[in-house]
């Protein structure tokens, strides 16, 4: 597949053009543009990264360095529902590992994996900055605080039901 295959829409390109103006230099727009690409294309393939380098006038290496440094940029596709369980101190002290184990069991996969139906990816993450609500699970970046095995099971069941309904 060539880099030409991945393209931002005209609206996106217009959005990027305004975005770039908010910074002293175009490279500052790289992270927001990576988020856009991730939203539009699901993950950041090498072709997407090349395309972005072209759009912002950066070298591919400048894009690669940023994509690989930050954990929230993904070079691989993941499930439609990304479940991120915080297991850092505050959450650990309030049962995060037990919760994570329970969720893996419900999902039938190991930590870091994606369910075969592509609905869920589960990952362990660092402190989410919400220790007052420990344990915390982010679902596609929506915080679920004081999560319990039951509340997570309910969420998983709900998502599965919805997906089943559509199919």
């Amino acid at each position: 597949m060539s880099a030409d295959a991945v393209r931002f829409s005209e609206e996106r390109l217009a959005e990027i053009e305004t975005l770039v103006k908010r910074y002293p230099g175009p490279q500052s727009a790289l992270m927001p543009v990576l988020y856009m690409a991730q939203e539009d294309f699901g993950y950041l393939s090498m072709d997407t990264q090349k395309m972005i380098a072209g759009v912002l006038g950066l070298r591919l290496m400048q894009v690669r360095e940023v994509v690989t440094f930050y954990t929230m940029f993904r070079e691989q596709p993941c499930g439609t529902h990304l479940l991120e369980v915080c297991t850092n101190a505050g959450c650990m002290l309030n049962g995060a590992y037990e919760l994570a184990e329970h969720m893996c069991k419900t999902l039938g996969i190991k930590m870091g994996e994606t369910t075969p139906d592509g609905l869920f990816t589960i990952a362990e993450v660092e402190c989410a900055g919400a220790c007052g609500g420990a344990p915390v699970v982010q679902v596609n970046n929506i915080y679920h605080e004081k999560a319990t095995p039951d509340s997570m099971d309910a969420l998983i069941t709900h998502v599965r039901a919805q997906a089943g309904g559509k199919a």
Binding site: R59, M61, Q62, R64, E65, T68, F69
Partner: peptide, 9 residues
């Protein structure tokens, strides 16, 4: 050239 970089952390 800038083609050498630092990947990951």
């Amino acid at each position: 050239t800038g083609d050498i970089g630092i990947l990951n952390r």
